[in-house]
């Protein structure tokens, strides 16, 4: 490469948006009164206890897809691990401290979905001066046409890829927001813009790693532990890992 080419590449790259890691998350407002979305600095709002269960009410292949998406987040290897909840719960009870997801023709307040097709509601509770997640529920519009899982490009017939959407919504439930809404230009499943991306990208993994870095698996702080438990002590990891292995095998075929 001669000097002219080097200068050309440098000029091109300087004119492009930064491609550095840029995951986003919520933080407390400066007065501590609320939570501000789409931030890239400050102390993230996270789960108080980094082992939480999620109960899926979708049924059949859709539950398997949701569990597979959950396993992808767990495979990043942070202390924050989802488990499959065994206590039946409906997503329209944000006061039960049970994370759950299911189909709905309307949102939980009986409002129409409008132009949303899936909605994650995050409930927070303030402990001392710090906000923590207390409950996360996902409702998915059952009036849309859904496929449990397809890879790659979006279908032109508007069939929605369920797994891709749940993967994104579970990222919100973990505490991640939209990096593009925070001024970032990165490749991520957490971007608000859908694309052919159907799996976790490095930026998503960096984001969740940053949020839960230094958080141990200790369950000594039990503010939400009793109400959000429902699985055994780690027994849920086996089916999740099996699902992840099955998915990899299918991809190889």
């Amino acid at each position: 490469m001669n000097i002219r080419h080097a200068l050309l590449v440098a000029a091109l790259l300087s004119g492009l948006p930064a491609l550095a890691a840029g995951y986003a998350f919520g933080t407390s407002t400066p007065d501590g009164q609320s939570v501000q979305q789409n931030q890239v600095s400050g102390t993230p709002v996270i789960w108080n206890v980094p082992q939480q269960n999620f109960y899926f009410n979708f049924g059949g292949d859709f539950d398997a897809s949701a569990a597979s998406a959950m396993a992808d987040w767990n495979a990043v290897g942070t202390s924050m691990q989802w488990g499959l909840g065994s206590v039946a719960a409906q997503p329209c009870n944000s006061g039960d401290h049970i994370n759950s997801a299911g189909w709905r023709a309307t949102t939980c307040d009986d409002a129409a979905f409008g132009d949303a097709i899936a909605v994650t509601k995050r409930s927070y509770e303030k402990i001392g001066d710090t906000w923590y997640f207390a409950d996360a529920d996902i409702v998915v519009d059952n009036t849309q046409h859904w496929d449990p899982h397809y890879d790659g490009a979006l279908r032109s017939d508007h069939t929605q890829d369920f797994r891709r959407v749940i993967l994104h919504e579970l990222g919100h439930a973990l505490g991640l927001d939209h990096p593009d809404d925070a001024g970032q230009n990165v490749t991520a499943i957490m971007n608000s813009q859908i694309s052919a991306i159907d799996s976790l990208q490095q930026d998503d993994k960096d984001g969740i790693t940053a949020l839960y870095a230094g958080i141990t698996g200790s369950t000594s702080n039990t503010a939400f532990q009793s109400s959000s438990s429902g699985g055994g002590s780690g027994g849920w990891m086996i089916p999740l890992l099996a699902l992840a292995a099955l998915r990899r095998r299918k991809a190889c075929i």
């Binding site: 919520g26 009164q33 609320s34 939570v35 979305q37 944000s94 949102t107 307040d109 409002a111 909605v119 994650t120 509601k121 995050r122 409930s123 927070y124 509770e125 303030k126 906000w131 207390a134 919100h172 927001d177 939209h178 809404d181 608000s192």
Partner: peptide, 14 residues
């Protein structure tokens, strides 16, 4: 949707 009521809050990403 969403808001703050005392020590409870809710938000909807996006």
């Amino acid at each position: 949707p969403g808001g703050v009521m005392g020590r409870f809050a809710q938000d909807y990403p996006g």
